[in-house]
């Protein structure tokens, strides 16, 4: 065997071992494309199935979206119509509000004017009441004076009548004395004066202080008021009682019906509605 043959044998053996090792390493570490392909295929099938289901879901969602869009469009149109109507109503309401505000302003001005007028009227009423009270007091005072003057006049007239009677009696006595003094036979009996001496003059009317009567309101029916005093207390028809309540004048009562223990009359100069328990008197 030649040397060259030996060298070739050695080289072939070395290279064959080396290449076989390389091949074994490569094949051992190579990727299993079939398994990878099958895995990819199964994944592809799964993805395809998933895609199909997703497409169905998309179609369902699209259908629902279309239905929702149709419904939404109808509702939007309806809401737009309602909005237009509400805007119109709002406009009408604003106009009505403006009108009402103007009316309120005018009514407020009128109320203020009315309040001022009422204030003026109340002031004048107070003044008139004060004047009426002073006039009543003056009237009572004048009535008292008139009663006193009337009583004095009656007394003077009674005294005058008694003086006339005394004068007449004295004249008659004088005539009798002259007859007896002129020398008559004296048979004539002494004549007594025809005119009798009157009793001492007395006042014809009671003094006003004795006329003061005071009672209590016992019933009120409309304009008819009943008092707790009657003819036994000196009440007569036509008398006027002044009704007061805690220093405030209520009204006057003109007596129209008189009973023994009660009397009734109509209301005059009404300031407040009389109540049961109010004081009624003929003098202030």
């Amino acid at each position: 065997m030649s040397t060259l043959t030996k060298i070739l044998i050695v080289l072939v053996s070395v290279f064959s071992i080396f290449l076989c090792g390389v091949i074994v390493v490569y094949v051992g570490s190579s990727t299993n494309y079939k398994a990878a392909y099958e895995q990819q295929g199964s994944e592809f099938s799964a993805m395809k199935e998933k895609n199909r289901s997703l497409e169905q879901e998309i179609a369902e969602k699209k259908r629902q979206l279309d239905e929702f869009g149709i419904k939404s469009d109808s509702e939007i149109s309806k809401l737009k119509a309602e909005m237009t109507q509400l805007e119109q109503e709002l406009k009408n309401t604003k106009n009505a509000q403006l009108a009402a505000e103007e009316k309120v302003a005018s009514l407020t001005a009128a109320a203020l004017n009315f309040e001022k007028a009422v204030g003026g009227m109340e002031e004048s009423l107070k003044q008139t009441r004060a004047e009426l009270d002073s006039a009543r007091a003056e009237n009572v005072k004048l009535s008292k004076n008139l009663n006193e003057i009337t009583a004095n006049l009656e007394e003077k007239m009674a005294q005058l009548a008694s003086l006339d009677t005394e004068k007449k009696r004295l004249l008659e006595e004088k005539a009798n004395l002259e007859k007896s003094a002129t020398g008559s036979t004296g048979g004539a009996a002494s004549q007594q004066p025809v005119t009798q001496v009157p009793d001492s003059a007395t006042s014809a009317v009671e003094t006003p202080s004795e006329l003061k009567l005071q009672g209590v309101v016992t019933a009120v029916e409309g304009s008819l008021t009943t008092l707790s005093i009657g003819s036994a207390d000196g009440v007569n028809a036509g008398m006027i009682f002044h009704v007061v309540r805690q220093d405030s004048f209520i009204c006057d009562i003109k007596i129209t019906e008189v009973d023994t223990e009660a009397s009734a009359g109509t209301i005059q100069l009404l300031q407040q509605q009389p109540k049961v328990g109010d004081i009624a008197s003929t003098a202030w």
């Binding site: 044998i9 050695v10 072939v12 053996s13 064959s16 071992i17 076989c20 091949i23 074994v24 094949v27 051992g28």
Partner: peptide, 17 residues
């Protein structure tokens, strides 16, 4: 023996592949 070893290695490789 070297040639036999090389042949065996080649055959084993072919079998493995």
């Amino acid at each position: 023996a070297l040639l036999a070893l090389a042949c065996g290695v080649v055959l084993a490789t072919a079998g493995f592949v």
